[in-house]
Design a protein around this nucleic acid. Structure first.
Lengths: 329, 329
DNA sequence: GGGCAAGATTGGATCGTTCAAGTTGCTGGA
DNA sequence: TCCAGCAACTTGAACGATCCAATCTTGCCC
C-alpha cells in the first residue's frame, strides 16, 4: 500500500514549499516556469491529487452539483430525465464538477434536503428539473443566494434566475406545420389540463400554427392527465366528435394511446408525439425530439459561469427541438 | 444570514466541550443522559449539522457511494439502469449515504476515474453494474481493498466479492414453462452471442426447461447482438427454418424485433421479452420483470455491512424475477 | 557595488471535526 | 486514611489544503 500523497510529499520531492505547489495548482501564472515544470513533474510522478475535503474546508466550495432523480412515473417519460442526467454528469466532469443525486417526494421535503445537503456537504449548486408556476423551491434557493439553474422556464417571472429550456411551442408548431404541408386541415391536439407551463406551451404551438394557416382550432383539442390509457380515451372521443384527420400530442404516452384509438377507428390518421422517447423509436412513432445532451451542457455552462464569478452574456437559453418523422405520418 | 453553526456553537450553548458534543453524535452511550439531552436540545435549536468535509478529513470516510451512469444505448434498456439508480439513491439516503455519479467510456478510463474519485473525494464504495467475464475493474478494486458491490454475478469466481443479481435463468425458465403449459413444444430462443454471462444465463433457463419437458432444443435458438433490427432479422430466419410456435427472447429489444418478424409471418406465435421495460408495457409485450428496487436496496445493505464493519450473514443475494403476461402470449 | 522594487518563496494560522491523552470527582476496598 | 479504578467530561493536536504576512531572490539602475 503506497503512502498517502499530500501536498507536502509533492513539495519535498520538487524541493519547494507547500505554498508553491498550491500556487502551481491554483495560480500557475505567478510561479516561475522552471519551478512550475518541476512541480508538475513531481505531481505526475507521485500521482498526487488534491484532497477535496481539505480544500473544501478552507475555501467553502465542494465542486459538487446536486440533481434530483425522480421515480419513473409511467415509465415512458422516465428516459428523458435519464438522458439529461447522463449529459449533465458528462459535461460537469469536464468542467471539474461532480454530480450528486438525491430523491424527494414533495416540494417541502425537497427543501429540507437542500438544507441538509448545503450544511452537511456544502454543495455548490443545484439543477432543478420540471419547475412549475409559483415553485417554492426556486424561491427558497433564491432567498439564500444558493446558485441554481432550472431545466424548464420560470413560468411566473421570466428573468428571476438562470434557466435552460426547450421551445415546446416551436416543436408542436413544427409538427402541426408538417401536417398542414401534407394537406391536413383539421388537426387535433391531445394535451394536458391547462395550468401547467409546459403543457400550455406545447398547446400554444399547435394553436398558433392552425390560426396562422387560417384553420379554426375550436373544438379540435382535448385535455387529460398524462398516460397511455388516458390518451386513448380522449383521442377516441376526439376522433368521434370532431373528426380530425391528424393528431398532435403533448407527450409520447398520450400519442401512444392516441395511436391505439386511431388504429381502432380510422387507421389513416397520422399521430405525432413529443419527447422522442425510446418507445417512439421502437414502434415508429413520429415525435418531437428535445436536444437533452445540449440542454444539460448549457445548464453546466450557466452554473460554472455563476460559480466562477464570470457573469455570462445571457442567463437563459432556449433551445430548438427537432421533428423526427417515422411511420406514423 | 445566520452565522455558521459548528460543533463549538453547540458546545457553548449546551455548556459542554466540543468533544462531548462529538460524543453525543458518535458514541451517545458514553454520555450521561442529562448532558445528552441538553446537547440534543441545543443541536435541534440551532439546526446544527455536522460538516462532512471536516469529519471526512479526520476519519477518512465520506459517506459517499459512486455509481456509473451509462449512455442509453439503444434507448430501450436504458430505463433499467434508471430504475435501479433511483432505488439505490433512495435506500442509500436512509442509510446515511449519498450517491455520486460518474461516466466512463471503457474499462481503462473507468479505472482511472476510480483512482481520481478515491484520492480526491475519498469515496467509501462503488456500485458496479453489468460485470462480465474477467472484468478488470473488479480486479483493480479488490487489489486495493476498496469496498464495492456488483449488480450482476462475478461469472468467473463466484465468491470473490459481494454481489446482488437477478436469476435470469429462472426468468426465462418461467417464461418457457408458461408456454409449455399452454401447449407449445417447439419454443424458440432469440439470445445474445455466447460468452456474456448474462446472455448465457438467460439462454440456460430456456434450455433447461425444454430439456426437462422432453423437447430437443437443438436448432431452436439463434444468437445476435442486441437491437430491434437484429432481433427481427434472426427471428425471421428462425421462424422460416425451425418453425417454432413460440419465442422467448433475451431482451425486450430483441423481443420487439421478433414481434415484428412474427407479425409479418405467423401472427399467432407468442413472444416473451426480458426486463419489462416501458416499451414492453406500452405495446403489451409480455416480459420477465426484474425487482430492481429490491436489488438496489440489497446492494446498499451489503455495502453498509462492509462499511460499518459488521460481517453480513451472506455476501451475495440472488433475487427471483417475475413473469408479466400481456397481450403477446 | 549598493539600494530598491517586483517577483518568488517561506512559515504559521486556519477551516470543523475526531482522536489521544489528560483532568476532575466520586466510590470502595485494604 | 489513602489511593486504585472508573465514569464523565475537557484540552490539545492532527487531518490536508489555502490564506496571509513576512522573508528571500533576482534583476536593474544609478
Amino acid at each position: 500500500m503506497p503512502e498517502k500523497v499530500t501536498i507536502a510529499t509533492v513539495a519535498r520531492r520538487a524541493r519547494v514549499s507547500r505554498q508553491t505547489v498550491s500556487n502551481v495548482l491554483n495560480a500557475p501564472h505567478i510561479v516561475r516556469e522552471e519551478t512550475r515544470l518541476r512541480v508538475q513533474e513531481a505531481i505526475a510522478a507521485l500521482g498526487y491529487r488534491a484532497n477535496q475535503a481539505a480544500r473544501q474546508m478552507r475555501t467553502g466550495r465542494s465542486r459538487l452539483i446536486a440533481v434530483r432523480i425522480e421515480p419513473t412515473r409511467d415509465g415512458i417519460n422516465g428516459s428523458v430525465l435519464d438522458r439529461f442526467l447522463h449529459g449533465l454528469t458528462e459535461t460537469a466532469e469536464t468542467a471539474g464538477y461532480r454530480t450528486m443525486l438525491y430523491t424527494a417526494t414533495d416540494d417541502q421535503q425537497e427543501i429540507a434536503t437542500y438544507d441538509d445537503l448545503l450544511s452537511s456537504y456544502e454543495l455548490d449548486a443545484f439543477v432543478l428539473t420540471g419547475t412549475d408556476h409559483g415553485d417554492p423551491r426556486t424561491a427558497w434557493l433564491a432567498a439564500r443566494g444558493v446558485p441554481f439553474v432550472t431545466f424548464g422556464r420560470p413560468w411566473d417571472a421570466p428573468e428571476s434566475h438562470p434557466w435552460v429550456d426547450v421551445d415546446g411551442a416551436a416543436g408542436t408548431a413544427a409538427a402541426t406545420a408538417h401536417l398542414l404541408a401534407a394537406g391536413h386541415r383539421r388537426i387535433g391536439f391531445v394535451g394536458w389540463p391547462a395550468g401547467s407551463g409546459v403543457g400550455d406551451d406545447r398547446r400554444t404551438g399547435w394553436h398558433r400554427s392552425l390560426v396562422a394557416a387560417g384553420v379554426d382550432p375550436v373544438g379540435l383539442d382535448r385535455q387529460t392527465p398524462d398516460g397511455i390509457a388516458e390518451g386513448e380515451r380522449v383521442a377516441r372521443e376526439l376522433l368521434d366528435r370532431a373528426t380530425p384527420t391528424a393528431l398532435v400530442c403533448a407527450s409520447d404516452s398520450l400519442a401512444l394511446g392516441a395511436l391505439q384509438a386511431v388504429r381502432a377507428r380510422t387507421p389513416a390518421v397520422p399521430v405525432i408525439g413529443f419527447d422522442d422517447t425510446p418507445v417512439a423509436g421502437a414502434i415508429g412513432l413520429s415525435s418531437v425530439s428535445q436536444p437533452l445532451g445540449e440542454a444539460a451542457a448549457r445548464c453546466v455552462d450557466l452554473l460554472t459561469a455563476v460559480l466562477d464569478g464570470s457573469h455570462p452574456a445571457t442567463d437563459h437559453v432556449l433551445l430548438q427541438p427537432s421533428l423526427v418523422l417515422r411511420h406514423t405520418t
